[in-house]
């Protein structure tokens, strides 16, 4: 990074921490202010006023920070032009209204249609397998000796940065196609070790997509494991005791006591991972940039928006991603209805 000051000056550090505490104080003051204002209301409108005070700030943040850009994206998907911001008032670079052209391009641009199929594989496999592995592990290490350490091992991939993760998997999948060449990738070293020809994991279509999916599962299982483990811990002991007294144990205990008790957490985990998967592009981007028939929608959204300067097409792809989340929302709404019934 650019060196402005050659060393950390104490005054500089102090001023930064000063800013931090000022920030914390301001945020705390806002929080207390909201609560106080909310408590002032009495009578007929009290309930509504308090709802506004409690939920208002968060909704405002979300509306400005996420909803507004989403609306801009919908608008942008009907325009052509190089620039992301249609209303930036930029010189002579006017955006042109092109109707549904950008959506048509989703089908006519070479290489784009196959991206849909890949995305489907990602969004089907990652949430289910990451949740499955996370749950399995959470159950297996529950109350085991050294549980905290055991969980930290699965959690680790979540904590590592994306650049690190990419390099990690390079040393797993690395392929040397030279006959008798040295394999510095773990998997191919093992394959050649037992006399099998090495495989080009990230290059050979169509399986390369699935080897990329493995990386995402590897990362997300830690999230699932952490959340589900907490949910398992929260099952009241008396329920489990009662079941045990009735002679229920092992797989049956899991199926008839544990699973129903953590159902809502399972839904939260599946939903969160599914949405994260739809949005994830770093893995594809870092491996081949999606050039080996292994691209996903999120990667194309990124590439078209920022690399090839086709923000209109990028926006159209983003809209498709928005639409793909609909089944997940519907699923959640159904579950909410069930809970309220």
């Amino acid at each position: 990074m650019p060196a402005l000051a050659p060393t950390v000056s104490a005054a500089d550090a102090a001023s930064k921490f000063g800013t931090m505490f000022l920030g914390l104080a301001v945020f705390a003051a806002v929080f207390i202010g909201i609560l106080l204002i909310a408590s002032l209301f009495r009578g007929k409108y009290a309930e509504k006023a308090q709802a506004v005070a409690f939920a208002g700030p968060a909704i405002l943040f979300i509306a400005l920070g996420l909803l507004y850009p989403a609306i801009l994206t919908i608008q942008r998907s009907f325009y052509s032009g190089k620039f992301f911001d249609l209303n930036a008032g930029l010189g002579n670079a006017k955006a042109k209204f092109v109707g549904f052209d950008n959506f048509q391009k989703l089908w006519t641009t070479p290489g784009l249609p196959e991206v849909f199929l890949n995305t489907l594989w990602w969004v089907l496999l990652v949430p289910s397998l990451a949740t499955g592995f996370g749950l399995l592990y959470a159950v297996l290490v529950d109350k085991a000796k050294g549980e905290a350490v055991a969980k930290a091992l699965i959690f680790l991939p979540m904590a590592i940065s994306m650049v690190g993760a990419t390099l990690i998997w390079k040393f797993v999948y690395y392929f040397n196609g030279e006959p008798g060449g040295v394999q510095i990738g773990l998997l191919n070293a093992m394959l050649t070790g037992v006399g099998i020809n090495p495989h080009d994991f990230l290059g050979a279509f169509p399986w390369n997509t699935f080897f990329l999916i493995v990386i995402m599962i590897w990362i997300q299982a830690g999230f699932a494991m952490t959340v589900l483990s907490a949910a398992i811990k929260a099952i009241p002991d008396d329920i489990i005791e009662a079941a045990r007294l009735d002679g229920v144990s092992g797989i049956q205990l899991f199926r008839y006591v544990t699973l129903p008790s953590i159902r809502s957490s399972l839904i939260v985990v599946l939903t969160t991972i599914a949405i994260a998967t739809l949005k994830a592009f770093d893995i594809v981007q870092a491996s081949s940039g999606g050039t080996l028939h292994d691209s996903v929608l999120a990667n194309e959204f990124y590439r078209r928006s920022f690399v090839t300067q086709e923000p209109g097409l990028g926006a159209a792809i983003a809209i498709v991603i928005f639409l793909l989340v609909t089944p997940i929302i519907v699923f959640n709404v159904i579950q909410m209805r069930k809970d309220q019934a």
Binding site: F175, N176, G177, D200
Partner: peptide, 13 residues
């Protein structure tokens, strides 16, 4: 090609 890496396809990866 592709000296040290294998066949033609290894160029892409």
């Amino acid at each position: 090609v592709n000296g040290g890496f294998g066949n033609v396809r290894t160029i892409a990866t």
